[in-house]
Amino acid sequence: MAKNSLISGSIWDEYSNQVVNRMNNPKHQGEITEEKAAELGAKLIVADFGAESCGDAVRLYWAVDENTDKILESKFKSFGCGTAIASSDVMAELCIGKTVDEAVKITNIDVEFALRDTPDIPAVPPQKMHCSVMAYDVIKKAAAEYKGVDMESFEEEQIVCECARVSLATLKEVIKINDLKTVEEITDYTKAGAFCKSCIKPGGHEAKD
Rank of each mutant, 00 (worst) to 15 (best):
D69K: 09
K27W: 04
K191Q: 12
P26G: 05
I11L: 08
T170M: 13
P202N: 09
V183G: 00
V46T: 14
A84K: 07
E157M: 08
A38N: 14
K172W: 07
G97W: 01
E185T: 08
A194M: 05
I139R: 00
I106M: 08
Q158C: 11
T68Y: 13
P26C: 14
I106N: 12
K75E: 04
G204S: 11
T118V: 14
V166L: 15
M91H: 06
I121S: 06
D110V: 15
E34R: 11
G55M: 12
N25H: 13
K70N: 03
D117F: 06
S74F: 02
I71G: 07
I32Q: 01
K43W: 02
H130Q: 11
K105T: 07
A192W: 04
K98R: 15
E145Q: 10
Y189F: 15
V166Q: 01
K172I: 01
A103Q: 12
K208T: 10
I175Q: 11
A142R: 06
V111P: 03
A144N: 09
T170D: 10
A143N: 05
C196K: 01
K3C: 12
E156I: 11
G148P: 08
S132D: 03
E31H: 14
M91A: 10
N67A: 07
W12C: 11
D48G: 07
P26T: 04
I96S: 00
G97H: 05
V64T: 01
E39H: 02
N178M: 07
R59W: 02
L180Y: 03
T187M: 13
T107H: 08
A51Y: 01
S88T: 02
T99Y: 09
G9R: 10
A47F: 05
L171E: 10
S10D: 11
Q158S: 09
H130I: 13
W12F: 02
Y189I: 07
T118S: 14
T182W: 05
L40H: 13
A42Q: 06
F76A: 04
A143F: 06
I45Y: 04
N67V: 02
L72V: 11
D120I: 02
E152R: 15
A164H: 00
K77A: 12
V19F: 03
L40Y: 12
R59D: 00
F79V: 05
P126L: 05
K208E: 13
A38E: 14
G148R: 13
K172T: 00
L168H: 09
G41W: 10
E173F: 06
K191V: 00
D65A: 10
I32M: 02
K43R: 11
C95R: 00
Y146S: 03
K43Y: 12
A63P: 09
D209Y: 15
K77G: 04
L180K: 01
P26N: 03
A169D: 15
